[in-house]
Design a protein around this nucleic acid. Structure first.
Lengths: 342, 342
DNA sequence: TCGATTTACTTTACCGGTTAAGTTACTTAT
DNA sequence: ATAAGTAACTTAACCGGTAAAGTAAATCGA
C-alpha cells in the first residue's frame, strides 16, 4: 500500500528541484541531457505515474467528455456509445459515462457531477421522462459545450443530432402503402418524447399523402420496450378489429408484438403485418425478420462527438443546430403485401 | 465562457476567508449560523460547483472505480456493466469505464491512465488476446485493489469472479451425450484466455467421462465473435467429415455457425447440431433457438464490485480468490438428439 | 475578577502538478 | 575587457480544494 511516487520524491532522490524533474519528464529544452536521462531512468525504475488530477487541476481543460445515456442495454445506444468511445480515444479525449436509468432526477445529478469534474463538454441522450430543461440551459450558459444525440431537446437553442425519425417513418409507411396496405395501426411512444412524436407524425404524414387515416381505435401509446409491445397488442385486440399492419415505434416493441401474436396464434405475416422503427443485429436470424429502419447509430455517435469537439476548440456559443441523419429501410418478411404470408 | 465560481470568489464577495466558505458549505459547526446562511445563499445564487479534481487531489481516496472491458456491444458484458453502474451509484462511487476493443496494448494504456487518475480500485475483464500479465501485478503491488470478472486471470494470486465455465460446458455436453450424440466438435477461443480453456476442458471432461474423445480435425480455436463462428465452420468444412454436433465457445460464435450453415444449405438442426456457452435476449425469437448456457451477468457484475469495495475498505492485500458462479442450461432447438430436425 | 472555555473565524500548510520569473556560471561577440 | 547571451537550474506562485493549528472576542465558572 505504498503511496504513489511524486515529482518531489524523485527530486529528493536526485538532489534537484521538482520543477526540474517535471520539465525533464516533459522533455523541455532547458534541462541538461544528463539530468534528463537520470530523471527518465529513475521514473522508469520507480514506476512514476503523474497524478492526472493534479495535472488537470492546473490545466485549462481536462480533455474529458461527459456522456449521459438513459441506459446501455439498448441496441442503438450500445452502438452509439461504442462509436463515441472509439472516436474519443482517437482524439485523445477521455469519456466519463454515466447512466441515468431513464430517471430524470438521476440524470440531473449526473450532469452536476460531470460539471463538477470540469469536463470539457457533455454528450447527452435524455431519459424517456425528461421534462425540465433548465439544467441543460445552465450547462450551456456556464459555457460548457453540449450536444444532444438520438433523444434530443429541440426548439430551445441546443445542438442536436438524431435520426430522421419523421422522414424514416414516412418512408416506411409509404413503402407499405405502395405494397397495397390501407388499414394501419400504430403502437407508439409517449408523445412528450421527441422521437415518439416525430415517428408518429411521419406515420400520419405518409398516410395523409395517400388520403388515408388510421382509425382512432388502432392507435396505442406507451413506452419503448418489449413489454409495451405485448400490452399494446393486447389493447388492440380489445377492439372489434385489427388493422392490416402495425407500425411499431421501436424494434423491441415490434418484438413484443411478435411474441404475443405467436402466443395467441396470430400469424405474422398473414393475419397481421408489421413494420417498425429500428433494427437489431439479430434481425436476420429471427423468423420472421421484421421490416424496419436501420439507424446509423455509430455515425450519430461519431457525429455528436465531432460536433462537440468542434465547439470545444471553438469556444463561441454555438447557435441552435439540428442535424438529421437519414435512415434506410431494412426489408424483412413482415411486410410482404396485404394478406400474403412470407 | 465565464470561469467557474471558486471558494475564493465567494470569500471575496462576503469579506471572509475561503476556508470559512468551505466549512460553511460543508455545514461545519464552527461557522456561525448567519454566515453559513449567507454562504449557502451566495453559492446558490452564483451556481457554485465544487471542483471535484481539487477535492480529490487532497483526499486520500477518490471514490472512483476504473472499469476496463474488451467491448460493450456484447450481451453478457452489457448486462454486467449495467449492474456495475447501478451498484456503484448506490454506493456513491463513480465509474470510469474504458473500452479496450479486444486490444491488449490499449488495455494496458487504459489501466495506466486509470492508475494515473488514482482510482480506488479496478474492475477488469481482459481482452481475448491478453497474454502479458505484469501490468496487473504492478497494479496489485502498487496497492490498488483489483478484481477480475468474467474473463479472468487465474493462478496468479488475483481475485476473480466468473461463471462456472468448465462445469457449465461439461453439463451442456453431458446433456447432449445423454440425448445420444457421440461425435463432437468444438469451435473454441484462444487457449490463453481463461474462459476458452475452461469451456474446452469442461467439454473434454464430459466426453471423457463417457469414454468419448473429439477428433483432432473437429477442433478449431479462434476469437469470440460471429465472424469467428463463420470462419470456424469453414475450417471444419475443409475436413472430410463434420461432427454430429458442435460446441461453440460463445453465443456469437454459435450465431456465426448458424448464419454460415444457412448460406451453405446445411440444416441446423438436422445435418449439424449445435450447443454453445452463452445466450441472448433474442434467442427465443431466433429459428432455431440455440441450446446454450445462461450466465448470471448481473450477479457477476454486482459481485465483482462488492468484492472490490470490500478490498478498498479493508486495505490488506487480498489473497487469491476464485469465485465461480453457477450457470444453467437453456434448452433451445439445436440439440434435439442426433439426426432429428426440430 | 481573572483564568478557562467557547464561538467564530483566520492563517498556514499541503495535495501534486504547471508556468513564469528569477539566478548563477559559462560563453560569445565587439 | 566587458556587455550580452545562453545553458541549466531554482524559487515563487498558482490551480481549488481540505485539515490542522492559531487567534481574538465574548462568555463562564469559582
Amino acid at each position: 500500500m505504498s503511496k504513489p511516487v511524486t515529482l518531489q520524491d524523485m527530486a529528493n532522490r536526485l538532489g534537484i528541484s521538482k520543477v526540474s524533474v517535471s520539465k525533464a519528464l516533459r522533455g523541455q529544452a532547458d534541462i541538461g541531457k544528463v539530468t534528463t536521462e537520470k530523471v527518465l531512468a529513475l521514473a522508469q525504475e520507480l514506476g512514476y505515474r503523474p497524478n492526472i488530477l493534479a495535472q488537470k487541476l492546473s490545466a485549462k481543460h481536462t480533455r474529458t467528455i461527459g456522456l449521459v445515456v438513459p441506459k446501455i442495454a439498448h441496441h442503438f445506444l450500445t452502438q452509439a456509445i461504442d462509436a463515441i468511445y472509439i472516436s474519443a480515444n482517437e482524439q485523445n479525449y477521455e469519456i466519463v459515462m454515466m447512466v441515468s436509468e431513464e430517471n430524470a432526477e438521476l440524470e440531473r445529478k449526473h450532469i452536476e457531477t460531470l460539471l463538477s469534474m470540469r469536463v470539457d463538454g457533455l454528450l447527452i441522450s435524455v431519459t424517456e421522462k425528461t421534462i425540465e430543461t433548465d439544467i441543460f440551459h445552465q450547462v450551456v450558459d456556464s459555457g460548457t459545450p453540449l450536444v444532444f444525440f438520438d433523444r434530443v431537446i429541440e426548439g430551445q437553442g441546443f445542438v442536436c443530432i438524431r435520426s430522421a425519425d419523421e422522414q424514416g417513418a414516412a418512408d416506411l409507411v409509404e413503402c407499405a402503402i405502395n405494397k397495397g396496405y390501407s388499414s394501419f395501426g400504430h403502437i407508439g411512444g409517449y408523445q412528450q418524447v421527441s422521437i415518439s412524436k416525430h415517428r408518429y407524425h411521419g406515420f400520419l404524414r405518409a398516410l395523409d399523402a395517400h388520403g388515408l387515416k388510421p382509425a382512432e381505435k388502432h392507435l396505442v401509446f406507451g413506452g419503448f420496450s418489449r413489454s409495451d409491445g405485448i400490452s399494446g397488442l393486447d389493447k388492440l385486440l380489445e377492439q372489434d378489429s385489427l388493422p392490416e399492419i402495425i407500425f411499431a415505434v421501436t424494434y423491441p416493441v415490434a418484438l413484443g408484438i411478435l411474441l404475443r401474436s405467436r402466443e395467441l396464434g396470430i400469424r405474422i405475416p398473414g393475419d397481421l403485418d408489421l413494420v417498425c422503427f429500428g433494427n437489431s443485429e439479430y434481425n436476420n436470424l429471427i423468423t420472421p425478420s421484421v421490416t424496419g429502419i436501420n439507424q446509423p447509430a455509430a455515425e450519430i455517435g461519431t457525429l455528436a462527438l465531432t460536433h462537440l469537439l468542434q465547439q470545444i476548440e471553438n469556444p463561441e456559443k454555438a447557435p441552435e443546430l439540428n442535424i438529421i441523419v437519414p435512415v434506410e429501410i431494412n426489408q424483412g418478411r413482415t411486410c410482404m403485401g396485404p394478406g400474403k404470408k412470407a
